[in-house]
Structure formats: structure tokens, C-alpha cells
């Protein structure tokens, strides 16, 4: 009864205005279809190449395979928590410096502390402002 499919979708067409720079690749790991849709839409419109993945267990594999420039990571995922995924990524030589924005709907104080201890770059609570997500992603990529 548990949905364990992992689907990879490339978001909408990149805007020609940002073609001057190389397209940035972002992987969104999130299991709520509506939220995936929303994030994909705003990032694509900003010139990002968006890939999505909705299963926690296979998330690390997906990251290693896709080698994105930045990562948006949900906390409550089917199969495996975002914290565990982050821990694995930080332990891996190729992904230890990968910029990660964590999104959570729980947003209690200790959640943020845990995420920071594990080496998250940015931690945001749902619901988020679209503009803020875009700004954060730009900042993460430029840092």
C-alpha cells in the first residue's frame, strides 16, 4: 500500500533570458505532489533546471546520480527522513559541500537545531514565500 515509485521529471522549459549563464541544476526531494508542482514552477521560471524525487530511501542515490548544483530537501519523506539523507550526503566526499535548503512542515525549534548540526545550508518552514525560496537558492549557488 506504500507508494515507493521514484519518478524523475525535468521541469518546464528554461527561460531564454538566463541563457547567458550556464543553467543551474536543482533536485527537489519532496513527496507532496502539489508542493513539488509549485516549487518546480517557480524555480523553472527563474531559469533553474529542476529534477524531482519523492522517495526517501533512494534519495541519496538520486543525488549521486544527478549531481545537482543545489538540493531542496523535505524532512518528512516516505521511507527515510530528510535528516538521515542529509547526514549521508555530508559524509560523502562528492556531496559534502552541496548547498542544501531544507523545508519542513514541522518547524519546531529542535528540528532547526538538528538540521543545523547536521550541516544544512538553509532551513525554512512551510509554508514559505516563493520569493524567499528563489532568493535563498540564488544565494546558495553564489556562495
Amino acid at each position: 500500500m506504500t507508494d515507493q515509485t521514484s519518478d524523475l521529471k525535468i521541469g518546464g522549459d528554461p527561460e531564454p533570458t538566463v541563457a547567458v549563464t550556464l543553467p543551474r541544476h536543482v533536485l527537489v526531494i519532496e513527496d507532496e505532489p502539489n508542493i513539488i508542482e509549485a516549487i518546480s514552477f517557480i524555480l523553472s521560471r527563474d531559469g533553474w533546471v529542476v529534477a524531482t524525487h519523492s522517495n526517501g530511501e533512494t534519495a541519496v542515490e538520486a543525488v549521486l546520480k544527478l549531481r545537482p548544483d543545489a538540493l531542496i530537501l523535505d524532512v518528512m519523506l516516505p521511507g527515510r527522513s530528510g535528516y538521515d539523507i542529509l547526514q549521508d550526503l555530508r559524509a560523502n566526499e562528492t556531496t559534502k559541500d552541496l548547498p542544501v535548503l531544507m523545508l519542513t512542515a514541522r518547524g519546531q525549534k529542535n528540528d532547526r537545531e538538528l538540521a543545523e548540526r547536521l550541516g544544512v545550508n538553509k532551513f525554512m518552514t512551510k509554508p514559505f514565500s516563493n520569493a524567499e525560496v528563489l532568493e535563498t537558492m540564488r544565494a546558495l549557488i553564489e556562495a
Partner: peptide
């Protein structure tokens, strides 16, 4: 329970806010 409630409330609200802004 609180954590769950938070999650259950915030998840639909996230979609609502994101699409409203769009």
C-alpha cells in the same frame, strides 16, 4: 501530536500559499 498537527496543517497551507503567489 503537535508535530503531526503542525505538519498536517502546514502541508496544505504550503500549497495554498505557493499557488496563490503564483
Amino acid at each position: 501530536f503537535l508535530s503531526q498537527i503542525s505538519h498536517e496543517l502546514r502541508t496544505p497551507m504550503t500549497s495554498i500559499r505557493a499557488f496563490s503567489e503564483i
